[in-house]
Design a protein around this nucleic acid. Structure first.
Lengths: 110, 110
DNA sequence: TGTCGAATTGAAGAATTCTTCAATTCGACA
DNA sequence: TGTCGAATTGAAGAATTCTTCAATTCGACA
């Protein structure tokens, strides 16, 4: 039996659910980048970055190609920017909501 | 110091990364639903569903209101449909890619 | 008030994911 | 061939998340 769709969706979102992986995807939206460059921009150990890149690679959302002594990663073509935009829209609402809640709490205790 | 944005994004996606939570969000796109109804449509134990609903509630993406002896959940207004659409677009690409890979593997071993 | 159904919660173990370390692979270049 | 830098991998413990069970809350209604 095939993986049910909601299961595949859940795994997809889970794959996105890590700060380093998010940063990588964001950086790759400007074009392909060598691991060294990613390493320079993200605050993470090399081996940990490798592990997170492996997660992205396995999912197929990025590709890796060796160029000389370095390895270059790129988005596999999928329209990641749109997804991030949609996510940001919701996330903004949620954070605003939390702020309002916080403000109310301050009110109430004042 | 505030939570960095990529951290908030990662938590957001992680919140989406569970089959039951995905199903709930999908079902709520058709309008508010009582927990009993969700329970009838999703293959999950009541206490487990409650736990997953709690995750969604805490994030603010859904609201819960008690109506008589049942509790009704609804999307908090955020545009979840768009997000799901963007996700589906990428996910489709990824799954197609995996199928092609699989086809190649079959080729090679034939 | 007592009881029932609906839903949630806390606690505990199981399962999964993260992080780090040491070891390894791979190409470049002397 | 030997060595170096770049990147990855495997293993192991730490941390987080899931699932399940029993207990609890809360309103409806007799």
């Amino acid at each position: 039996m095939p993986v049910p769709l909601y299961q595949a969706k859940a795994e997809f979102f889970r794959m996105l659910g890590h700060p380093v992986r998010i940063r990588v995807l964001e950086l790759l939206q400007d074009g392909p980048k060598a691991v060294r460059d990613l390493l320079a921009e993200i605050d993470v150990e090399a081996s940990n970055l490798s592990a997170q890149l492996a997660v992205l690679r396995r999912s197929g959302i990025v590709t890796a190609t060796r160029e000389g002594s370095t390895v270059v990663y790129a988005l596999a073509g999928a329209d990641v920017a749109d997804l991030m935009k949609a996510a940001r829209r919701i996330l903004t609402e949620l954070l605003v909501g939390q702020n309002e809640l916080l403000a109310q709490l301050r009110e109430d205790s004042a």
